[in-house]
Amino acid sequence: MASSQEDVTLLGAIGSPFVCRVKIAFKLKGVEYKYVEENLANKSEQLLKYNPVHKKVPVIVHNDKPLAESLVIVEYIDETWKNNPILPSDPYQRALARFWSKFIDDKVVGASWSAVSTIDEKEREKNVKETFEALQFLENELKDKKFFGGEEVGLVDIAAVYIAFWIPMFQEIRGLDLFTSEKFPKLYNWSQEFLNHPIVKENLPPREPVFAFFKGLFESIFASK
């Protein structure tokens, strides 16, 4: 598969859970790539050229062909480099993996972000409740499996890096209980197993600077009220 490795670039930002997904997928596949850190407050010409629709990271450029949106990119990586499959081979299981990955983006990311960043108390309570409901679905879906896909890290686990790494950090900064071992024992055990997986561990951002960045961000949100 040497031809697939000719020229791969990832445009990213260190604190982004979506960029982290792509890094984990590349590492699982053993793909070499060039990483370009973007300043999202001052977006580069390259980013605007390669992702004119959303103007967001991650973007990968493979042999001059750009691709945006983390879940789309992870599937592309899986289809381009055949070793260590990320999606199941069975069509039904593959469809389910796509469903739950999209569920995380649609139901967990938005509600939990609003829960920690919303000034209005009523709105926050509503978002906390929605986050709980969404996490409960994932708790039930996990059953007694080590990872969502079984014994190996797969698409849903990669999508859920946001839950494992970012939500605990957000709740610590804001003093909220969104995701705890008491409320979600299976999901919590999964998160520890996932974060300690050698490939995942190696591709997580350093916690201190990311923590400091979001702490500053939340302080500025709440200072402006």
Rank of each mutant, 00 (worst) to 15 (best):
D144G: 13
Q136C: 07
R94I: 03
D105C: 02
R124G: 09
V74N: 11
L138V: 00
I158L: 01
E79A: 12
L96A: 11
V116D: 02
K122Q: 15
Q93F: 14
K122L: 14
F137T: 15
L176I: 12
L195W: 00
A160F: 10
S89M: 14
P91K: 04
M169L: 13
T80R: 10
L155C: 06
I163V: 06
Y76Q: 09
K102C: 14
V161K: 00
N63C: 10
V128F: 03
T80S: 14
F194V: 03
F132D: 13
E182M: 09
D64Q: 15
A111C: 06
R174T: 14
Q192G: 07
L155F: 12
G149V: 01
T118L: 14
P88R: 04
V153R: 04
S89H: 12
G150E: 07
V72L: 13
F179S: 00
K102G: 15
T131C: 11
K122A: 15
S114R: 14
A95T: 04
V153C: 01
D120E: 14
F184W: 03
W190E: 12
Q171L: 01
K65T: 15
D64E: 15
F103D: 10
K186N: 13
A115M: 10
A111P: 00
L67K: 03
R98F: 04
G175R: 03
E130W: 03
I104A: 12
E125N: 14
L138F: 02
E75Y: 13
F148L: 11
I173W: 00
D78L: 05
I167L: 08
L176P: 00
E139I: 05
N127A: 05
D90G: 06
E141K: 15
V74S: 12
Y188L: 04
I73K: 06
V153W: 03
F165D: 07
L71H: 11
D90S: 09
L142M: 02
S101Y: 01
L155Q: 09
A97C: 10
V74C: 12
D120A: 11
E139P: 07
N63V: 07
Y188K: 09
Q171M: 04
N84T: 14
S70N: 05
F99Q: 06
S117I: 12
D157L: 07
Y92D: 03
A134E: 04
A160G: 06
L135M: 04
R98P: 07
D64I: 03
A97Q: 09
V161L: 01
Q171I: 02
S112D: 05
K146I: 08
I119S: 13
E133Y: 03
Y188M: 10
F194M: 09
Q93K: 14
R124C: 12
L138N: 06
Y76T: 08
I163M: 01
V161R: 00
L87K: 12
F179M: 00
W190S: 05
D177M: 12
S191I: 06
L195Q: 05
I163G: 02
I77G: 11
V156G: 08
P91H: 05
I119D: 11
D157P: 06
K146L: 10
F179N: 00
E172K: 14
L87Q: 11
L195R: 06
I167H: 01
A97D: 10
A160E: 02
Q136W: 10
S181T: 11
E79S: 14
V109C: 07
F184E: 04
S112L: 03
S112G: 10
